[in-house]
Design a protein around this nucleic acid. Structure first.
Length: 147
RNA sequence: CCAGACGGCCGGACGGCCGCUCUGCGGGCAACCGCAGGGAGGAAAGUCCGGGCUCCAGAGUGACGCGGUGCCGGGUAACGCCCGGCGGGGGCGACCCCAGGGACAGUGCAACAGAGAGCAAACCGCCACUUCGGCUCUUCGGAGCCCAAGCGGUAAGGGUGAAAGGGUGCGGUAAGAGCGCACCGCGCGGCCAGUAACGGUCGUGGCAUGGCAAACCCCACCGGGAGCAAGACCAAAUAGGGACGGCAUGUCGGCGCAAGCCGGCGGGCGGGUCACGCCGCUGUCGUCCGGGUCGGUCGCGCGAGGCGUCCAGCAAUGGGCGUCCCAGAUGAAUGGCCGUCGCCCCGCAAGGGGCACAGAACCCGGCUUACAGGCCGUCUGGCAUU
RNA sequence: UGGGGGAUCGUCUAACGGUAGGACCGCGGACUCUGACUCCGCUAGUCUAGGUUCGAAUCCUAGUCCCCCAG
């Protein structure tokens, strides 16, 4: 993933799971934790890095299905995270997205909606600068199209 | 046309928007950007075998042990795989299935039932003889029949069992029995065909020598161990090790001209003990060196490679020629969303729902297991028509 | 990803190839004025599918599930 930084080590996942806030939506489970690092020097030098970047990790357990199903669930979560997190999630946070069995069967707009609600419930939601109505409009547009 | 057998192949297609990774080229100090191209499977799966590759051990291999394989011939780098035969079993047939060496090298096993379970065995029967008793007949010598007991013979019949010491028939006999004969089965020997497994045939033995080796075992053959998280290289921060230099440093002993080095005691810190004994460490600053963790790079894809064609071979397969370069991630890329078509299901319709099994992790050859649906070829049996 | 081990009543465990046994739990009965304890009885099981064998929980093959080790 080019845009988002990833959580890669098992220790980081365990810290988020034990210290963070958690919300379970039908299509996914979100764990969010504010990152309190030590004083980091590099951000004084570079302007291009926006303050503190947010980081995200994905977990899909074997209960969801076989390797094909887990792979597909993780890719859908990845696509949802790339669509929602950069504009609507709070920076300097670590997020862990956990896949469920419905992650594959749920429609994609509903999955995006699940992620936004989870962000709001964990207190990590921030309104997109120009596109606060972007997400709502997207959802309502989809709803209107279906109706 | 219906039912079936075998072999091979495919296993969604097209388009739009937004992304990921690798390679090449160009730009940029760099972060990165632009263009072009590549990007999951027949099983990638299970990890059941065989190799390549790497490290370790050993170095002459062999033996012991352990594990595996087991009809014959061929193929292969090798195999427990494949092909072709043989034998046995199943099917009307095409065809399918079989761990299929050795039980006169040895040790063992067979519950229950049954008289008897590996060596033979007599419960009910059958038969002969002897004796007691009864009946009938009598030429009065005895003869026949029946019952019981004893002592023998007998594996035909009953019964038990998964299995009872070849099977069927005829002869034979007191009753029986390979006791004799014919056929079948089995063992041995000769001849013929075959590379061989094995088959055919002739003679002979006269059924002894039953079953289980996916019981121990014997024989033949094969195997050193671990695995890319193998292994190689580069190399932060902190702690610790070594060398050198500066400054600081009680006492005793040894060595040395000396600088100094080594050892004991003392001091300090920590552990332990109720306490002592006891154990460990022990000045500071700077530079350099070696080991090594996080991290990174390589290993890492030109190969027992793919495709086409010709030749040899029944085939597995091998050979020649031409042509192509065809995934390389590391919390792990190969996708996400939408539309049209295709197929299936529900429904009168409108419409709705679904799209097999399944995701490379060093690579290759097999095996096994999972799999919606579809296509092609060869063959078998049946029905109808000509 | 690689390596190793296991599966027996609801639970914990036994069983030379020959009827699958025990404990706890459950159910019924006895004892008691009632309950507990105790005693008696009952229910219920070899992970699945093939094979070897007269006969398989046991032996062989394939599969399913679970556990452990290596970062």
């Amino acid at each position: 993933m080019g845009v988002l930084d990833r959580l890669k080590r098992r220790r980081e996942f365990l810290i988020v799971a034990s210290q963070g806030r958690k919300w379970a939506a039908p299509g996914l489970i979100l764990q969010a934790m504010a990152r309190i690092d030590g004083p980091r020097s590099p951000l004084t030098t570079a302007d291009c890095i926006p303050a503190e970047p947010l980081r995200v990790g994905f977990t899909v357990s074997r209960k969801v299905g076989n390797a094909v199903a887990r792979n597909r669930a993780r890719r859908r979560l990845k696509a949802a995270a790339e669509a929602v997190l950069p504009s609507q999630a709070r920076a300097a946070y670590d997020y862990v997205l956990i896949g469920r069995q419905q992650t594959m069967t749920r429609s994609f707009p509903a999955l995006l909606q699940d992620l936004e609600t989870a962000l709001r419930k964990t207190g990590a939601h921030v309104a997109a600068p120009g596109g606060k109505d972007n997400s709502a409009g997207q959802g309502s547009g989809d709803r209107s199209r279906r109706a």
